[in-house]
Amino acid sequence: MSRDRRFFAGLVGVAAIVTYLVWTGISDTMVYYMTPSELVSRAEANPALLEQGVKVSGNVVPGSYQSRADELLHTFVVEDPDDPAVQLTVEFRHPLPDTFTDEAEVVMEGRYLAEGVFQATEVLTKCGSRYEAMPEEGDYSSASGGVSG
């Protein structure tokens, strides 16, 4: 009986460790996922948000994309899908995904620098209309998309 109890204790121990790992993992790494207008209004209410990483999705404003190869900098403007008046200027210093176009819908991770400037560390594009269940995620995502497994 005591042997069984020992195994039970081991089981609970492993479960507790995993739960702990998941818990700390989530609290260390979670990011809020917002629309541009949510981001702007929340950042005004709570400037602490400026220090935090966030995830933002929106539509690229056609014609706003500029790139300078010598400075390795991409800039473009993203607007809120529901409220085109809210716009963010995005700066990005990594290669853009192949599926990035002037009209793409993008999901970005990075920091909001106030004054409408967003410094992205990661840009993913979504173009769901073509491949159902398969958003094209490029660049830092693997996008093993709808066709993988």
Binding site: V22, G25, D28, M30
Partner: peptide, 29 residues
């Protein structure tokens, strides 16, 4: 852990209404 992390945006949206995502750092950690 993998299931939890994968479903996390769904779960948080269902529970607290705002989407919270975890990325590769979570899974690696």
């Amino acid at each position: 852990a993998v299931t939890w992390g994968t479903m996390f945006p769904l779960i948080t949206e269902g529970l607290i209404g705002s989407r919270v995502a975890v990325g590769p750092p979570f899974f690696n950690q």
